Simulated scan of single mutants.
Amino acid sequence: MAEFVLVTIKVHDMAWVENYAANVPAIIRKHGGAYFAVSESIRRFEGDGPDLDSIVLLTFPSRAATEDFISDPDYAPYKAARLAATSGDMFAFTSHG
C-alpha cells in the first residue's frame, strides 16, 4: 500500500537548502518516492503550532520504501543538515479512501 510522508518545516538557517534540493530528490527516487506537493504558501485554519515556512508531501510505494529512504546512508548527511537548521515534524501515513 502506498504511503505518504508529510514534513513540516520552520527554517532557522537557510545554508542547508541548496545542497539538500540538489541531492535529495535523486535519493527519494531511488526508493520509488516522489514529491507530491511542496509549498511555502501556508494558511492555518485551526491549531496553535508554530508558524511554518514550508510543507512537503512525498509519496512512496510502500512503508518499506519509506523506511528504506529514511534510513539510507546517502540521505543521512542531508537529513542531519536539515535537522540542524530547522524545526518541524515528519509523519508517514496511508490513505483509507
Rank of each mutant, 00 (worst) to 15 (best):
I28N: 06
S62L: 07
Y78Q: 03
Y35V: 15
P50H: 02
G47W: 08
T94V: 10
A92I: 12
G32F: 03
I70D: 02
A22R: 12
A81P: 06
T66A: 11
A22S: 11
A64K: 13
N23Q: 09
E67R: 13
T8W: 01
V24I: 10
A92M: 14
F93P: 06
I27D: 10
A65R: 09
L57E: 01
S41H: 13
S71G: 05
F36H: 09
I70V: 14
G97W: 04
S62T: 14
P61E: 02
G33R: 03
L58H: 09
A34F: 00
A84P: 01
G33S: 01
V5G: 04
E3C: 04
D74Q: 14
I9E: 14
R29V: 15
A26H: 11
A26Q: 15
D13R: 00
A84S: 10
G88S: 06
K30Y: 03
L6T: 12
A81K: 05
A64W: 00
E3G: 00
L6G: 06
I70N: 00
F60G: 02
T8V: 08
V11E: 12
S41W: 02
L52A: 08
Y75R: 03
E40G: 12
Y20H: 10
G33H: 02
H31L: 07
N19K: 10
F60D: 01
I9D: 03
R63F: 05
L58V: 07
F36R: 12
T94D: 14
M1H: 09
D13I: 06
H12P: 00
I55E: 03
K10I: 08
Y75G: 02
I27G: 07
R82D: 08
F93A: 14
M14A: 12
D68R: 12
A64T: 11
S62I: 08
V5N: 02
L52R: 06
D51P: 05
R43Q: 15
I55A: 12
N23W: 07
A85Y: 01
F93E: 07
V24H: 06
V7M: 09
V5S: 06
D51C: 05
V11F: 01
I27F: 09
L83Y: 02
F4W: 06
L52D: 08
I28R: 11
M1N: 11
L83E: 15
E18I: 00
S54E: 15
I27Q: 05
T66W: 13
D48V: 10
F69W: 11
R29D: 15
I9S: 03
F4N: 08
F45M: 07
A85C: 15
I27K: 05
F45I: 09
V56W: 04
E46V: 11
I27A: 04
R43C: 09
R29W: 00
V11C: 01
V24T: 13
A84I: 04
A21F: 07
I42R: 03
I9P: 00
E3T: 07
S54C: 14
Y75D: 08
S41K: 13
Y78L: 09
I55M: 14
A84E: 11
A65G: 06
V56Y: 05
S39M: 04
P61W: 04
F91G: 01
A26R: 12
S39Q: 04
Y35G: 03
L83M: 10
D74K: 08
F69N: 01
A34C: 03
V7C: 09
A15P: 00
Y35H: 10
V56T: 10
L6R: 01
S62Q: 09
S62A: 11
M90S: 10
N23Y: 05
S54G: 04
